[in-house]
Design a binder for these strands. Structure first.
Lengths: 123, 123
DNA sequence: ATAAAACTCAACCAATTCGTTAAATAACGC
DNA sequence: GCGTTATTTAACGAATTGGTTGAGTTTTAT
């Protein structure tokens, strides 16, 4: 667990086609690393690295049972990024100033957090 | 125009905080390159490169009038990537929920920071 | 105990990214 | 034309990325 998920790491993770392919595969079911790697024309080590990147971005979780590491899609990180993006797509029609304030609040400290959760700032 | 917008280029463009900052700035209004660069602690050349990357991703357009190049937000590319993300499903409802709550708070007549109830078990 | 399976780690390489500064280009304004 | 403003291009460097192979480690099977 190197870094905690940020918009940086989430979008960077999504920028690679192999990693998006992996996410699509995991949409169907949880998979072992080896099974993820099987249809990908790349060394197992490379796929393992991609999975680590996806995990650091919070887009998947990995649970080791026995010698098998199971990979599971975690849509929460995607949701955060989606909120950010849909704002740009839809807000022009509504209120740009409001959306800017929204962004300031959401992105004030980069780590991905629940976008709904109110800031708990007892001052 | 180097390459045409792809999911690769869009997500890669979004992965940089400076570029997201630029997009936020362009929400307010179209801007000249120099004006985009002004609040960014970085050389003009670097900002110019960021704008090129955003343009190649289709996230902004640039129109040169005289010696000034105007930068304009293009939400369509974002929408396309957003559609891809929605393919991952479940988060969409929650996303819209977050959006709704945001609208309630931000666009209320009196934008008081109401403590939002600690919800949300999507079940 | 030994071998195989399921990974990860380390070392390496090529290509790309993100920034710099300095020079080049293009359009004003006089 | 000459200097200034607006912006890109070129050359460079440090850091990161995305892949490789080969050697671990841990768990399972015989």
């Amino acid at each position: 667990m190197a870094d905690k998920p940020t918009l940086d790491t989430v979008f960077a993770a999504l920028a690679d086609p192999t990693r998006r392919q992996i996410l699509s595969m995991l949409l169907e079911d949880d998979m072992a690393v080896t099974d993820v790697a099987e249809p990908i024309d790349m060394s197992l080590a490379a796929v393992s690295k991609h999975l680590t990147i996806l995990a650091n971005a919070g887009l998947i979780s990995q649970e080791k049972r026995g010698r098998v590491k199971w990979c599971k899609l975690e849509p929460d990180a995607l949701r955060e990024a989606s909120v950010w993006m849909q704002g740009f797509g839809q807000f022009e029609a509504i209120n740009l100033d409001a959306f800017e304030r929204f962004l300031e609040v959401e992105l004030a400290d980069d780590p991905v957090k629940d976008p709904i959760e109110p800031e708990q700032e007892a001052g």
